[in-house]
């Protein structure tokens, strides 16, 4: 686990955070305004919810939770926070 400098690991994980939030935004926006932008009479309903809401909000939360679980399990590395010596460059 000590193959990399902790600052490089941290930078990579911050990038993952940005990618996740961009993905989350696109998912949220595309379903909400893609499926929601019509007259309510024409809405489809899934489990009683309008389809735009079901995919954007409900499925969105669980998709993100799963993505976070997967990225953290497979891409995040343990780093010792007690290390006395590390260089920032």
């Amino acid at each position: 686990m000590k193959d990399k400098n902790p600052f490089q690991i941290a930078n990579r994980e911050a990038m993952i955070g940005i990618i996740l939030v961009v993905f989350n935004f696109i998912w949220w926006f595309a379903f909400a305004y893609g499926l929601g932008d019509k007259s309510p009479e024409d809405y489809q309903f899934i489990f009683g919810f309008p389809a735009w809401f079901f995919y954007s909000c409900i499925v969105g939360v669980f998709v993100m939770a799963i993505l976070v679980l997967v990225t953290v399990k497979f891409l995040f590395k343990d780093v010792s926070l007690d290390e006395k010596e590390f260089d920032q460059t």
Binding site: F7, A10, E13, N24
Partner: peptide, 19 residues
């Protein structure tokens, strides 16, 4: 939109900030 606070804040501040 607040679901992002659950992961984004910690990931960005992250290990680098804790160090």
């Amino acid at each position: 939109t607040q679901v992002a606070t659950g992961y984004f804040t910690l990931m960005i501040l992250g290990k680098r900030f804790a160090l």
